[in-house]
Each structure stands twice: as structure tokens, then as C-alpha cells.
């Protein structure tokens, strides 16, 4: 598909791209640290991935192949519209296959297929500050990050254990990056947190409304916060996928009728379809 005329390559103007690119380089140099940037108004509202789109627009080139997922799916409204957006304003090839993509923009999942060197994973982030529910003042949270003072979050985890017997966070589970910065992994399920640890791909995070960019370089230590006697445990539905039978992937629960019927299916559509295709080929 050729690029639409009347737009700069990738929609953003060159001044904006340069500003975002400078922020990205500093974000990579300081893993997990939130770098402020001048978030622009985009042709879709805040909350639809404007941060991720601005990061992708600043990174993408004509040789790239873009995949966009929304909760693991390639075929939902947000994913389809962002993919079409870049096909129009950058003229890039798009794909639904994780292995074929050079840039993967994601809302709230990490693909099941293992990423490799050379791939860039761009997260859409609604709230970049992991401490915001515990400390609403930005000036205070900046200070806490400067001092690496994360006691408040440990107290929150401890209170969860005291009340519920386990840490009651199933998504957006806070992580420590490179042993220094507490970071929000964006609202990915805690199940996906271990995939961030020493991932060969470069992980970039964009929060459009909150105007923050941060990053995790490849092969960087990313630890989910926990206690020695209450180690972190990723949560997964105790079932197999109704379509491909996978017992390793992250599952969505789908209600099938109004009589209590339900099935579990893979949240990652590319992974699920790939498995189904291989099973059919084997039969």
C-alpha cells in the first residue's frame, strides 16, 4: 500500500519525531526511568494508544513490517485501526504474524511467540507511574524514584498478603528494572511479566496522556516485586484453549450462552491460529 499524500512520513512532523527520538535514547540509557515528552494531539483520542503510536511513528521506517495487537488479538478495532493508520501514513507493510514483524505495537499483552533480536515491542501505556495509587503527588513520586524509595509498594504487597494470603494484583504487576527503577509494565497480565526479563527484543513504552516514555533494553533484568517467602507466581486460568488446546498460553474466558456456558481461548490470536494450522496439517 502506498502512503497517503499530504502527510509527513509516519504522520508526525520532524521536530516532534526528533524530540521523541531524543527521549527514547535517554530512556534506553536509563532502563525503567520515565522520560517526559511533549505528547501531541493525535487523530484518535487519549486512551486509544496515542503514546504507543507516537513512539512507533518516531521509530518506523519504510523497511519495517508492523504488527499491532490489542489484548493479544490482531482483529479488534484498536489493532485494526492503528495498523491501517500506519499503512496509510507510512506506507509500511503490516502483518499478523509475530515472527515476521520488526515492530510490534501492543496494548496489554506480550506475544506468546518468543521475540528475537532486531524486533521492537512498543507498549501502549495508560498510567506510567507505578506508585500513583499509593502516592498521587507527582513531585513525591519523582523524589521516591530518585531515592529508589519503594517501601510503599512493598507495604502494599505485604498488606495484600496479610488480607488475602497472596498478592492480589493480576495485571499491571510492578517490576524492578535492572535492580534500580520500579516500573509499571503497563496493564499486561502478571502472566506476561516473566517474558520481560532478559528479553532479546527492545521494549519501548509510550504514555500519551501522561506524556512519559520509558524503555527496557534487551537482556535486561526485570523482576516482579515479591518476598522471599511469597515468591511471585504468574496467574493463568486452569484450562486448555478450546480451539488449539494450548496449556501454556494466556487464556481469555468467553461466555457462550446465557445458561452459564463458557470456554477458554488463547488471547494471542496469531499463536492460536498457528497452532490450529499445524494441527490441521498434521492430520
Amino acid at each position: 500500500m502506498s502512503a497517503a499524500t499530504g502527510y509527513n512520513f509516519g504522520y508526525l512532523d520532524e521536530d516532534t519525531k526528533r524530540m521523541i527520538r531524543r527521549a527514547l535514547l535517554k530512556a534506553v540509557a536509563i532502563p525503567g526511568h520515565q522520560v517526559p515528552f511533549g505528547s501531541r494531539e493525535m487523530p484518535l483520542p487519549y486512551g486509544w494508544g496515542t503514546g504507543g503510536i507516537q513512539v512507533t511513528a518516531s521509530v518506523i521506517g519504510p523497511a519495517d513490517r508492523l504488527k499491532v495487537i490489542d489484548q493479544g488479538a490482531d482483529d479488534t478495532t484498536n489493532a485494526v485501526s492503528i495498523r491501517r493508520f500506519f499503512a496509510r501514513v507510512a506506507g509500511v507493510e503490516t502483518t499478523e504474524r509475530t515472527a515476521e514483524a520488526s515492530i510490534i505495537q501492543t496494548r496489554h499483552r506480550i506475544p506468546e511467540t518468543t521475540l528475537r533480536e532486531g524486533q521492537i515491542l512498543v507498549y501502549q501505556v495508560p498510567m506510567p507511574e507505578p506508585l500513583f495509587r499509593l502516592e498521587p503527588r507527582v513531585a513525591e513520586t519523582k523524589r521516591m524514584h530518585a531515592l529508589a524509595d519503594y517501601g510503599l509498594m512493598h507495604v502494599k504487597l505485604y498488606e495484600d498478603i496479610a488480607r488475602h494470603g497472596h498478592v492480589a494484583i493480576s495485571y499491571n504487576y510492578p517490576v524492578m528494572v535492572n535492580g534500580r527503577y520500579l516500573m509499571s509494565p503497563s496493564p499486561i497480565p502478571a502472566f506476561d511479566n516473566p517474558k520481560m526479563h532478559r528479553n532479546p527484543a527492545l521494549q519501548l513504552f509510550g504514555a500519551g496522556r501522561e506524556k512519559r516514555i520509558y524503555a527496557v533494553p534487551p537482556y535486561t533484568e526485570v523482576r516482579s516485586l515479591d518476598f522471599e517467602d511469597h515468591p511471585f507466581e504468574p496467574v493463568r486460568a486452569r484450562a486448555g484453549c478450546a480451539l488449539c488446546g494450548s496449556r501454556e498460553s494466556y487464556l481469555d474466558e468467553v461466555v457462550t450462552d446465557d445458561a452459564g456456558g463458557r470456554i477458554f481461548v488463547c488471547s494471542d490470536t496469531d499463536y492460536c491460529q498457528g497452532r490450529q494450522a499445524r494441527q490441521e496439517a498434521a492430520e
Binding site: 512520513f9 519525531k17 535514547l25 540509557a29 518516531s58 521509530v59 527492545l202 534487551p218
Partner: peptide, 19 residues
């Protein structure tokens, strides 16, 4: 090519900084 050459250079710089 100011737009495309800057993009290509940035990707080289990002890859260099990331690795």
C-alpha cells in the same frame, strides 16, 4: 532525504544504544 535518512540514522543510533 532528510526524513528517511534521519529515520535510518536514528534506528542505527537506537540499536547501538540498546546493544
Amino acid at each position: 532525504e532528510p526524513v528517511l535518512d534521519a529515520q535510518a540514522c536514528f534506528r542505527a543510533a537506537l540499536e547501538a544504544m540498546a546493544r
